[in-house]
Design a binder for these strands. Structure first.
Lengths: 108, 108
DNA sequence: TACCGGTACCCGGTGATACCGAATACCGGC
DNA sequence: GCCGGTATTCGGTATCACCGGGTACCGGTA
């Protein structure tokens, strides 16, 4: 699928939040997971900027732990603010996507 | 619904294309229509920038005609390139929205 | 020992996009 | 003559995903 970057704006961060909410995880693994899920062109640099933003906005808890196969990993967990943010993200997504689908179908 | 601007990035232009494809129309009317359709906070300034972009990218045909209730209107119609753009927009939307919905449901 | 690929993270800068605020202008009615 | 509704334009702003490069840890191999 050709360039989707503009369409991912505002939604990619929510996807990352969702993945973190499932289980404690780290940037490299999140990128891999997103690629598997069809977001094939999302690269690690993008995910790291999102993670740093989440950290700056105090939506996540961070724990650095060593890895046995490479440099240390930064593991992320949602805090209460993060869970609220995730909930409002899905509310917004539901709202926007339903309106767009509606506009597409009966359109006018 | 609170601030949706980030989530509309990359999709609002497609919505405008869709509305134009339905019938020849102009900026002010498009804004009104979008507001009715649930995009309540989208303002005329935003729509006009999109329209000028469509014009610059040669996706629309433009015809300026007088109005009986105000200043002249710029009516827009899709050309072939515009129709192709609209088609690829919906393809992308289908792709992205289905992946996000999937990620939400069975998530991992 | 030196190198290389895979793992893992960070940072400065870019381009695209929706939004904001102000300005211009046409029109009818009070 | 002013005000609200109609109609468009423009310069500037904020945010976001992306790009390119850099740093660093680790195991295997030549």
């Amino acid at each position: 699928m050709e360039d989707l970057t503009e369409m991912l704006k505002g939604t990619l961060e929510g996807c990352v939040l969702e993945l973190i909410s499932r289980e404690e995880t780290y940037g490299y693994a999140i990128t891999r997971r997103l690629n598997e899920l069809g977001f094939t062109d999302v690269i690690d640099g993008t995910v790291y900027t999102i993670l740093l933003r989440l950290e700056r906005n105090r939506l996540v808890q961070v724990a650095k732990r060593p890895s046995e196969v490479g440099p240390p990993r930064k593991f992320y967990t949602l805090n209460d603010a993060g869970r609220r943010e995730l909930a409002t993200f899905w509310t917004k997504w539901q709202y926007v996507s339903s309106r767009i689908d509606k506009l597409r179908e009966d359109g006018a």
